[in-house]
Structure formats: structure tokens, C-alpha cells
Write a protein that binds this DNA or RNA. Structure first.
Lengths: 187, 187
DNA sequence: CAAATATGTAAGCACCTGCTTACATATTTC
DNA sequence: GAAATATGTAAGCAGGTGCTTACATATTTG
């Protein structure tokens, strides 16, 4: 078994491209990330991006398919708390979380658009299980919106109140307010 | 009395450009609005955009200076309700309100960046007068984040729960939850 | 009226973008 | 080992972007 890295390894370069794209899309958003940026960070020729993924949109779709649901890994009850904690604990640099690049308007072709739609639905569905009010979907959507907004503000270059704030304090405040919307609190 | 429109009128074309830019930035965001789009909607030659405003960034700064504070026109107590109502009552097309284009990451030069900073501060300052908790600023920032997130979700192409929802119902839910943050509370 | 100035127009430049092509070199297959 | 294939590289294309320039025409000024 030769453990030496092969001088050519399609799987490795594919993975490097995916990692670089994930990081850059999260940092800068879709529009402000160029295929040359991605290839450079991956240490790879940019033509390979198109050989392995076909287009920038398709690469974005791959990124979202792999990473977009990471925040959903919590049990239903602790979902909101888990989402907030992960959001608040990520470094300021990647504060503009991937999920929320999906909400930016315009751009994006149909392949990527399909992924976006599913993703939002998944979060809303998970959140709406937390309440049995008749308008549970709306309540869940409002809570999702809160998380989105907090993420946006954290990513905003000039506003640092949220970046400097204590994680536990933020979680306490948000959960306290949100539980008036999601009637069943964490168990 | 010549009430006839003059064949050449710098003030009028300047205003037309400003109006067109305001609408397009709100609809599509900064990046997805081109100077040619703006000039076309204004019915004006695009070179005039640069004669009257200097650059696309400077035009954006002018737009924000003029319109960005429109949501602030309410008395302090009713601020949140007023902001929400205006937000929810604007047509879906311009749902991506101007204020929130300012939160998109990257891009934007220094002229525009200065305006953005002030703007957010104004909203937070207005909101933080509503609570006397020691971390009032953080609480205000969280509430601002909620408004931002709701606006983002409304603007998102594929999610229409918030667009179809009853305005009064949304306001009732958000105010009910937010008052646990902004009321004169414990501690 | 004539000169000076303000306003409008068409064309294009320099740069960046996603993407493609032609080719070189490594790796596998027979 | 030779042919076939997989992987990497350099260069460039077509289209879009913000912005500039050279010029035409309307309006104001003396």
C-alpha cells in the first residue's frame, strides 16, 4: 500500500475544489466568488472545475447538497438551539453561512434553485413540528427568518454587536422570545 | 407661462435616474443591477448617470442617503410595528427592501460603506430606547435582525408562506415575541 | 445674434466573468 | 512496452461590466 500521494488524483482535486468552493461561497456569497478564486484556493487549474462539475452553478448545487443540511443534524427539540449555537460559534470570517447565500435574490440557474427550495422547506418542516398551532408553518417561517437575519447582521462588515456578544446570552434571549411562537419548548 | 416640459432638464433626468436606481436596487440588489438597466428604466442615456453621480457606488450612496431612513419615520413606541407594516405591505416585487441590500456582503466601496454603517446604527439606536435592560443594544440588534430576516425570506423567490400570510397576523406574532426582548424586563 | 455653456448621444475601451479548446503528461490496460 | 485513457496546463474566446471620450445640439448669456 503506497501511502504516498499520487501525482495525479482526480478524487483529491475534486474534493479540494469542493472544499474551496464551500469556504468561499460561505465567506463571500455566490456572486462575489469567481471560479478563478475557487481554483486558486484549491491549488488547482480552473479548467478542472468545469471538467468535474460542469459549471459554477452546478458546483454551487454540489456544495449545497453536501453541506447545506449540516445545521439540521440536531434532534427536533434542540433544533433551534443547535442551529443558533453553530451559527454563533463559527468564526466571523465564515459568518455569512452557506444556507443564507441561498436566500440572496436573483442569479442562480435552475439546478441550484431546486436545491435552495428543498433546503428551506426542510428547515421549516423541522421547525413546524415544534408547535401545534394551526399556523405552525408561518410561525416556523418567522423563526427561520430570525435565524437568517441574525446571520446576516453578523456577516455585515460594520456591525459587530452580534459578533462580540456572548453566545449563551444570545441563545437565551432568542429562545426565550421564540418559545412564545413555538409553544412546545425544548424537552 | 411655459408649463411645457423643457426638452433638456438636468434636474428631471437626475431625479429620473435616482428613482430608477431606487427601484432597481430594491428589486434586484446592488450586484444584479447594471448601470444600463438604470439608465434604460429612467429613459436616459447611461453616460448621464456618470455625469450626475460619478459612479455606480456613489449613486447607490445617494439612493441610501435619500430613501434608506424611510422606515424610521415612526414614533419610537410604534417603531417596530410601523417597520413591519410597511415591510409587509410593499408589493412582492420590491420586497427585497433597500435597507437590506446594504447588508449583503462584499462589494461596495467606501462612500457607500459609510452610509450603510450610519443606517444600521440609527435603527439600533431607535430600538434600544425601548428597553432599559443593560444589554439593550444587543436586544435591539436581535430585533433588527428579525426584521431583516423576515424581509429576506419574503424576497426569496421560492418561499411564499410569508408573502401569502396575513399582515396583521404576522405583526401580532412578531410583536408578541419581541416584547419579551424590548419590554422593561427583569434583571 | 454670436459666443459660451449646459445637456444629450453614440461609440468604444479596458477589464472581468464563466467557460472552452488544444495540447502535454501521467496512469492504466492489454 | 505500446496503445488507450485519465488528468493537468496554458491560452484564449465571447459576452458583460463600469466608465470614458468625442461629438452634437439645445439653452443661456453677453
Amino acid at each position: 500500500m503506497t501511502a504516498e500521494p499520487r501525482r495525479r488524483d482526480s478524487a483529491a482535486t475534486r474534493a479540494a475544489l469542493l472544499d474551496a468552493a464551500t469556504a468561499l461561497f460561505a465567506e463571500r456569497g455566490f456572486d462575489h466568488t469567481t471560479v478563478r478564486d475557487i481554483a486558486a484556493r484549491a491549488g488547482v487549474n480552473q479548467a478542472l472545475l468545469f471538467r468535474y462539475f460542469g459549471s459554477k452553478d452546478a458546483l454551487y448545487a454540489s456544495v449545497m447538497a453536501g453541506q447545506g443540511r449540516e445545521l439540521l443534524d440536531d434532534s427536533a427539540g434542540r433544533l433551534l438551539e443547535g442551529v443558533l449555537r453553530r451559527l454563533l460559534e463559527t468564526g466571523p470570517r465564515q459568518a455569512n453561512h452557506l444556507l443564507f447565500t441561498a436566500l440572496q435574490p436573483g442569479g442562480m440557474d435552475n439546478a441550484a434553485a431546486g436545491i435552495r427550495e428543498e433546503l428551506g422547506d426542510d428547515y421549516v418542516r423541522a421547525l413546524s413540528t415544534l408547535t401545534d398551532a394551526e399556523n405552525g408553518e408561518l410561525r416556523a417561517e418567522l423563526v427561520l427568518g430570525w435565524v437568517v437575519g441574525i446571520s446576516m447582521l453578523r456577516a455585515s462588515a460594520h456591525r459587530d454587536v452580534l459578533r462580540r456578544a456572548d453566545t449563551e446570552e444570545v441563545i437565551r434571549l432568542v429562545l426565550g422570545a421564540a418559545c412564545t411562537l413555538l409553544e412546545r419548548t425544548e424537552q
